[in-house]
Computed example of a mutant assay.
Amino acid sequence: MQDNFGKPETLLADNGYFSNNNIQACVKQKITPLIAVGREAHHLPLEQRLMPDEPEPANG
């Protein structure tokens, strides 16, 4: 069976994969690692969710 995808050039991963070992493994294989180093909260506190939207700028 022929490999139609070739060699990967980039790794895209979430923050659960961020480690020195994973970065070094990518470097060794000449793969550019794009790994999240942090995480944003998914849900704002109730007070912030219920606040009115800020007005749009007048000059758009």
Rank of each mutant, 00 (worst) to 15 (best):
residue 26 C to K: 09
residue 25 A to T: 05
residue 31 I to H: 02
residue 7 K to N: 08
residue 57 P to E: 06
residue 14 D to V: 08
residue 6 G to K: 01
residue 3 D to C: 07
residue 50 L to P: 00
residue 33 P to G: 01
residue 44 L to P: 00
residue 42 H to Y: 10
residue 35 I to H: 00
residue 26 C to F: 05
residue 57 P to C: 05
residue 22 N to M: 12
residue 11 L to F: 03
residue 27 V to F: 13
residue 37 V to M: 00
residue 10 T to P: 02
residue 29 Q to I: 00
residue 22 N to H: 13
residue 41 A to L: 15
residue 38 G to F: 11
residue 6 G to S: 05
residue 34 L to P: 01
residue 25 A to D: 13
residue 36 A to E: 06
residue 52 P to E: 11
residue 10 T to M: 14
residue 43 H to M: 13
residue 2 Q to N: 13
residue 32 T to W: 08
residue 55 P to E: 06
residue 10 T to E: 11
residue 22 N to S: 09
residue 29 Q to T: 03
residue 13 A to N: 00
residue 32 T to S: 09
residue 8 P to T: 07
residue 11 L to P: 04
residue 46 L to Q: 07
residue 7 K to Y: 06
residue 1 M to E: 11
residue 20 N to H: 07
residue 20 N to I: 12
residue 10 T to H: 08
residue 9 E to K: 10
residue 35 I to V: 01
residue 26 C to M: 08
residue 49 R to Q: 12
residue 36 A to P: 08
residue 48 Q to C: 05
residue 24 Q to P: 04
residue 33 P to Q: 03
residue 6 G to P: 06
residue 12 L to G: 01
residue 17 Y to R: 14
residue 12 L to F: 14
residue 42 H to R: 15
residue 50 L to R: 06
residue 36 A to W: 05
residue 27 V to W: 09
residue 10 T to A: 11
residue 47 E to V: 10
residue 28 K to C: 09
residue 22 N to I: 13
residue 17 Y to D: 13
residue 50 L to I: 04
residue 17 Y to E: 13
residue 29 Q to D: 04
residue 39 R to D: 15
residue 56 E to K: 05
residue 2 Q to L: 14
residue 11 L to R: 05
residue 25 A to N: 02
residue 48 Q to W: 08
residue 45 P to W: 03
residue 55 P to T: 01
residue 22 N to K: 00
residue 25 A to S: 07
residue 55 P to S: 01
residue 28 K to I: 04
residue 17 Y to P: 03
residue 16 G to Y: 03
residue 42 H to L: 09
residue 36 A to C: 06
residue 4 N to K: 14
residue 41 A to R: 12
residue 17 Y to A: 15
residue 20 N to A: 15
residue 38 G to Y: 10
residue 8 P to R: 04
residue 29 Q to P: 03
residue 15 N to W: 15
residue 9 E to Y: 09
residue 55 P to D: 08
residue 44 L to A: 11
residue 37 V to L: 00
residue 16 G to Q: 02
residue 11 L to K: 05
residue 7 K to I: 10
residue 34 L to H: 11
residue 55 P to V: 08
residue 26 C to A: 11
residue 5 F to H: 04
residue 8 P to D: 01
residue 52 P to G: 11
residue 32 T to L: 08
residue 6 G to Y: 02
residue 5 F to T: 01
residue 2 Q to P: 15
residue 28 K to Q: 07
residue 53 D to E: 11
residue 50 L to E: 09
residue 21 N to P: 00
residue 15 N to R: 12
residue 11 L to D: 06
residue 13 A to C: 07
residue 13 A to K: 00
residue 20 N to F: 07
residue 32 T to V: 13
residue 49 R to P: 14
residue 21 N to Q: 12
residue 59 N to K: 08
residue 11 L to I: 02
residue 36 A to L: 13
residue 15 N to A: 14
residue 12 L to W: 14
residue 21 N to Y: 02
residue 34 L to F: 14
residue 17 Y to N: 15
residue 54 E to P: 00
residue 9 E to Q: 14
residue 4 N to L: 14
residue 48 Q to P: 00
residue 48 Q to G: 02
residue 28 K to D: 15
residue 7 K to V: 13
residue 13 A to V: 09
residue 54 E to Y: 05
residue 21 N to I: 08
residue 20 N to R: 12
residue 35 I to Y: 00
residue 28 K to Y: 14
residue 28 K to H: 15
